[in-house]
Nucleic acid binder design. Structure first.
Lengths: 203, 203, 203, 203
DNA sequence: TATGAATGAGCTTTCATTCAT
DNA sequence: AATGAATGAAAGCTCATTCAT
């Protein structure tokens, strides 16, 4: 069964609840290590997190972490690899309602990842290539979908391609960073309002 | 279109040239240490940069770094404190031209900081409170100015306050993170296009 | 007069010989570290002894010291905690012979500790609270025993309580510091002579 | 004018009051450095006191300390040399009253030194030879005087020489360390009571 | 005499990683 | 798979001492 991500605004608590239901009671050792790393990387950052604390939080001996993940960076790589899935599937169009389509995109990012993993994805993007690539694909996918939604709603002008591209990229940027912005500056942005805004802008 | 020297997109080299001309000669050892730290923090991140490498790049003995900055974090704090100035001054209004005003805001962020310092500001926001606060103030100032520019151009509707706020916040988010997005994902966003987009959206 | 093996004046070499025979084999790495620390702390003092030299003398890598003792001070604390036992048990009285009882107390301090540990106990008393507390308890115990020995030998006067207390405290002070005095000033004090002296004084 | 030390129990506050009266308002630079060192060495110990903190407390630049005292150890040496004077002068005898003579000795140690300096003398005895020597001389002088006081009061037996020596040494040990004992263990010893005790013991 | 920047050796401590069991 | 002791390189930081001014 697929982990659904109903909204980028889903809380961390709700996420872990939904995950825990589908897994063995405490999860196997490898999973517990990744769980611990996810929490710690999201909280204090990859560099500032010693492997010893990962092991401690996971409740496993220190040496075991290196049994599953030969180098520390492999924990991060595995985390991103296994716990951030960029969903690249086709979506049905809705010719009449660009704002609605964007709004849906905002509420359901093409990304299966916990809030913690989203944070890691943004924060550790320059720690390792694999993280950056994942983020890049996510960004591209959001842009692709936003462009698709907007194209249908537009009469199809000529020089409008550039504006459309800018609109899609803007929408992606806001979606990706609204969470970080809110965490860092306390300033909340309503994705639906942005969706409507962008859709309006192209009329 | 040509990027002016004042643009946030000016190169690192151009920045340091312009700064050196006007900074007081406050003993260049401390300055060299900060220069080195600025470069290294921007490149590899605060946590991943040993003080020894800062000293090495600055061409000073290791101990001297701690003469000026008792703790490593003080280097970061001083850097942000002294090299990122959020400009909070009044700007002239231009009632007729919201897009132009936003465009000008994009080209001339209310922030005096080198590209490297901007990178540090965004990247190390959760490393220390002082960085987060500076970023927060910058974000608030951009929103304030964007709101101001848009207000004048609007007929002055009733329930439009929320839309206006969302537009301003969106604009700020994109401006702040366009540079990071570009670096991380390679996807470039044209600030002028975003300015026009946002302005259009509110008509 | 021959110093018995139980005497506080037994040599360091004799002590370690006797200990090694009966100590449980509790992983000898930790023990070797403590042995080395005991020797070095006694010789040059806690502050003047680098952990690196402890490791070196113990024949273990530097990092291992911190595996067992997270902070340097923990080595001292553990040393005092595990290697200085203040014996607080009841002793049989000897009503007729106060001098003899004191003499026995002098020869057999209510303290199980090597000469080196005794030195550390006295020298590092203001380095850490735990050391001071141990020394305090030792002092109190000697006083308690001395008072007990003297009480029996006294006819049981009225205002003699104060004199008795002073005598006991004096005896304790001399016993505790005779070793230090001898080391520092070269002046030797015979505990037996002091015992006889104090006993006589109360008649 | 000579600094009088009326009693080993004179408080630190009283001492500094009496000294300040006879000196120029803040004392010259060298004096201020020694004052600061005296306070810090007494408080935290020689090894644990950085020269920088001495300078700071003295209110002089760091470099100046090394102008007056080329090596850190010279501060300690000068302190002991100049601020602990062992008084080796003849005293009038009082044939009838051994207890009184000892009591007077206790109240007026043959040592001109502040309480802080006394603490330094005992604590840093194995830090440097010159300190140890000073302590040794002080001990010897106390013993000499105690012996002198006791000799007169005794009938003058033959084998009593050893007992007399032990008594004198005991008295010295208690006097020297009563202050330390009190500080470390909180156990107070009344010098007068000890004086009477020792005097009684030899009858 | 006064000053504080400069120097570098050495300190405590951290940590990724290895390894024997 | 599991365990935690072992390892040593390197980190942040301290500090006595020097030196140019």
């Amino acid at each position: 069964m697929v982990r659904s991500v109903d909204s980028p605004l889903q809380t961390a608590k709700a996420w872990s609840r939904s995950r825990r239901r589908k897994q063995p009671p405490d999860g196997d050792t490898r999973t517990r290590i990744l769980d611990a790393a996810e929490e710690l990387f999201a909280g204090g950052g990859y560099e500032a997190t010693p492997t010893a604390r990962i092991a401690e939080l996971a409740g496993v001996p220190k040496g075991l972490v290196f049994h599953y993940f030969p180098r520390k960076i492999d924990v991060l790589i595995s985390l991103v690899d296994e716990r951030t899935v960029v969903v690249e599937e086709e979506v049905e169009a809705d010719p009449g309602d660009a704002a609605g389509a964007l709004s849906r995109l905002a509420r359901r990012l093409p990304l299966r990842a916990s809030p913690a993993m989203r944070r890691i994805l943004f924060r550790e993007a320059d720690t390792h290539l694999s993280v950056r690539e994942r983020l890049s694909r996510l960004n591209a996918e959001i842009i692709r979908r936003a462009r698709f939604a907007l194209e249908l709603a537009l009469p199809g002008g000529r020089g409008d391609a550039a504006r459309l591209e800018a609109a899609a990229a803007t929408f992606a940027a806001v979606l990706l960073y609204q969470e970080s912005i809110c965490l860092l500056t306390g300033h909340h942005i309503d994705p639906d309002a942005v969706a409507e805004l962008i859709a309006n802008a192209l009329h």
